[in-house]
Structure formats: C-alpha cells, structure tokens
Design a protein around this nucleic acid. Structure first.
Lengths: 168, 168
DNA sequence: GACAATACGTCAGCTTTGTTGACATTCCAA
DNA sequence: TTGGAATGTCAACAAAGCTGACGTATTGTC
C-alpha cells in the first residue's frame, strides 16, 4: 500500500479514488458559483433573486404550467413559491390565468416583458456555458452531462428527462 | 435552415447549439440538488446548514487557515462567515487560536469532533459522487471535470487549483 | 345533494444565510 | 508616535427557505 491505494484497485478504477472524488466535489462547488454568477448580476439590478430566475426559467420551459407542477419541479413549498410568483405577477412578468377544464388551476405564462428578462438571463448563462463547452470540447461535454445525470435524485431526473428533448 | 441550425454550422459544432447548452444548464441545476441532498440530511439533524458544511470542508482542507483566507475561498462577507464560525467554535467543532506572528489573525482547525462530522459529510457526498462516476465511466469523468473547470470564475479557479493536488 | 379531496392563496412566525454599518484591536509605515 | 490599513466582532436588516393553520373555489364521489 506504499502508493496510498488499496491493493486490489487496478489501474482501471483509479478514477474512483477518494482523491479524485474530492476534486470532483470541489469542482462542482466552484463551478456552480460561476454558473449562477452572471444571472445573479442581472437579477440584482432589478432586486430579484435566484428564486425568481428559477421560476422564470421553468415557466418559459413549461408554458401554461400549473402552480402545482412548478412546485414539484422546483422542490419548494407553495408559500415560498407564492411569494416569488406574486411579485412576478404584480410586476407584469408572468400572467396567471384560470384553467378552462379545471377552474381551480392557474396556468402560468411569461408576458412579453417576462420573456425579455428570461432571454437576458439565459443569454448570459448560455454565454458562459458555451465558453466552457468550447474550451472543453465535444467529448468532454458528453461526459459532463453523463456524470451530472447520474448525480441527480430520482425526482429531478424525471423532471429533467421530461423536458430534455422538448424543443425550445 | 430546414434542420433548424445555422447553415454555417458544421457537424463539429453541434455541441454548441442553444439546445445543447440549455440541456447542460438544466442538468447543472438538477444535479446540484442531488450533490447537496445527502449532506443536507445529515446537517439538518444537528440544525446546521450548508454554510456550516462549506466552512468545515475548507477548514479541513486548509488546516490553520485564517478567517480572511477562508473568506476569500467561500466568497461571502466576513460577518456572514463569522456567525457560522461562532456556532462551530461554541459547539466545539472548530478551534480558533490567535496567530503567533500576527495577533490579529485567528488560525482555524477542526477538533476531533469537527473532524468526525467532516468525515460523515464527505463520506455521504463521496458516495453519491462515486456512484455517478462509476455509472458514467472514467472518460466521462475527465470531461466532467474539464467542463466544470472551464465554467469557474477566475478567483474560484485559483482557489480550486491551489487545493487541487494537495494530498488529502 | 352532501361531503371529502384538490388547487390555490394567504397570514403568522421561524430559520438560515446573505447583506451593510459601526466598532475594537492590532500591525505597520511615514 | 501616530494615523491608516488589516483583522475580526456586534447589531440590525433582507431574501428565501420552512411549518402550521386557515379560507375559498372547484371537482369528484358516495
């Protein structure tokens, strides 16, 4: 064990050492900061926060979604989401319309103004993601997504898969 | 443009489409939830939060670090860090000793008890990361890390690189 | 038609974790 | 030696999460 590795570990499993895993954990931590940095700057100008960004993103991706559905995607309580949603509706970024089939439901859409903010936010976030993709190359991108998908909870994976191949 | 792609885009740049970038963004969002889920459960039992986890992790990785240095790694205000640090010191998980050379500085170490919690937290997080690595395979892991590193801010990358190859 | 369940909104109150501002202590350099 | 910079602490506030309770409208079921 003079090499610091369990003796039964062959060359093929070197990527599973605690050392490698620790690097992955720290990379995830630092990268997530970069991931949110650019949208955060835009949001701060309008005194919105990350919670608003998440709501806007998933309403954009699921036009007409109900509050309940959004709740299960975001994984927060309705009280928490409601606070965010209320300000977005008051500010005219999101519209809430009573359901036709089921009048208890509210269907959520981005207004023109909401879509404009969504675009600004996702442009900023995509720019960084594009730079990272370009720097790392196409094969790295495949691996990136594979590891991320394998890291998700069951629930998250369901939501992710459901939206994954839906056109923009 | 009947394929929905800009005509100048060759096969080699398909991984840079907005569609691909969006999938990466959503994968990052959902994966980060999984990434923090297991430690969060352990922390909740002791009425600690993610901020405590981060402090414990980086004190473990940088024994004897000063508050200021920890501050720049974590990227929060000193007041915010101080609150977390105070509870950890009161609870006997972290020791704070006045600097010999510069008496303004405090040097931070994990106590035996603090190291035990650190172990529990990182074991849980490593388990999930290991499962994801194993599922995705070694080549995917290389790509995963490459994209994450390219996504970091300058500051984060410096901190990451400084700790990267330091033994556990 | 009565009644339980569902969907949504809201009030109140608490926690965690971020922020700014004010302040004490310590060090260093002019 | 003294004034400014650096380090860390206390106080107060804000964003965004949480639980619990409750009201209202609507739907579905017995």
């Amino acid at each position: 064990m003079s090499d610091g590795l369990p003796p039964q570990m062959g060359q093929s499993l070197l990527f599973l050492t605690d050392e490698q895993l620790r690097k992955g954990i720290e990379a995830m931590f630092f990268a997530y900061r970069g991931f949110t940095a650019d949208p955060d700057r835009i949001l701060a100008e309008q005194s919105y926060g990350r919670a608003h960004h998440r709501a806007i993103h998933f309403i954009h991706r699921n036009p007409g979604t109900t509050v309940n559905n959004l709740l299960s995607i975001l994984g927060v309580t309705k009280q928490s989401l409601n606070r965010v949603l209320r300000t977005l509706i008051e500010d005219g970024l999101v519209s809430s319309t009573i359901g036709q089939r089921d009048k208890r439901e509210r269907h959520l859409h981005l207004t023109t103004e909401g879509a404009a903010l969504e675009r600004a936010l996702s442009d900023a976030q995509r720019d960084r993601m594009r730079a990272a993709y370009r720097a790392a190359g196409p094969e790295a991108v495949v691996g990136f997504r594979q590891v991320l998908e394998a890291m998700m909870d069951e629930d998250s994976r369901h939501h992710y898969e459901a939206m994954k191949d839906r056109p923009e």
